[in-house]
Simulated scan of single mutants.
Amino acid sequence: MTRHNRPINPAARAANRPYRLPPPLFHARSRAAWLLVGVLVLVAASFASLDLHLASFASGEALASMGRFLAEFVPPDLSAGFVHKVALGAWETLAMSAVGTGMAAVGGLALAVPASRWPGLRGSAVRWLLNALRSVPELVWASLLLIAAGLGPLPGTLALAIHTSGVLGRLFTEALQNAPPGPAAALQIQGAGPWRVLAYATLPQVLPQLLSYTLYRWENNIRAAAVLGVVGAGGLGQLLMFHMGLFQMDKTATVLIAMLGLVACVDGASFGLRRALTR
């Protein structure tokens, strides 16, 4: 083969091809610029449509009222009896978030497998179910479940599980669909069935990612579990609403401190676990 008839290496051809830089940000052909303009227009329209009264909010009288209100939180109630009561509420909030997230991880995986593998109408129906579960906020689910389950941590735990199942199911579906196909294809060539391929090829590859998603949602569910007490779903949120409704600001301050401490501890533990999984 002569030098003139030698095939051209595609990599060399790509290397010799002139590189075209993207257009500058402030240019008519820049998509980022038009996206930024659209976001700014939406923000300006939002401020124009809302009656915010920012001037009265920053007035001297309003600032003085906020100062007097914040002064009522000091000092917090640190009596032994009330601290024990808050500790029990914090444990209840932690248990609600952990049980709800665990149930959601199982339910989300059970829905993600058919959503990622079933073609056509059946797979679309499962994906629509995932959309429906996560489109309703936890507070609305808890309000609906209170009618059937009554006051306490049960409706809050179920609300977290239902909403988070939709969120984790969608994330798990994308992880399963984006798994490298090599190991699964090797098992299929050997005659392994679809469930064995899932158990021995696909799941081991995406398991660290699934655990990372679950831990991240656990962080979010700690905050959600604290808020669910507003509708009587137990935990620190129920204590917060009770004492705030009675204008017992010293006790309210103690509950808020417990919320901040609980969220900080769970965030730190979850961050450490996720870093350990991704190493």
Rank of each mutant, 00 (worst) to 15 (best):
I222D: 02
N9M: 11
S30N: 14
F73R: 03
L277R: 11
K85V: 03
G156A: 08
R279D: 06
V99Y: 01
A45C: 09
A224T: 10
G38P: 07
P181L: 10
A142S: 06
A184S: 14
L187E: 06
L129Q: 05
Q238P: 08
H163P: 09
W91Q: 14
F271H: 09
L54W: 12
F271L: 13
A175N: 10
A225W: 03
A175D: 12
A148F: 05
L215R: 02
V230K: 13
M66K: 12
N220M: 14
F73E: 02
R17L: 14
A186L: 10
N220S: 14
A45K: 00
A55I: 08
S135V: 03
R170C: 03
G237D: 01
L262Y: 02
A62S: 15
A58P: 00
P208E: 01
T93W: 02
A58W: 11
V106N: 02
A105V: 03
F69M: 13
M103G: 05
M1K: 11
S30P: 08
A80Y: 04
A132I: 13
R274P: 08
L207W: 13
L215M: 10
L50G: 08
A48Q: 12
M241W: 15
A201F: 10
G123N: 05
A58R: 08
R279P: 02
A175R: 14
L129S: 12
N131V: 05
R223M: 04
A201H: 04
L256F: 10
I162C: 02
R122G: 14
L154F: 13
A112R: 04
M259T: 12
Q209S: 15
A33W: 15
R3Q: 12
A87D: 00
D267W: 03
P137C: 01
T202A: 07
V83S: 13
R117D: 03
Q238L: 10
L240Q: 07
V43E: 09
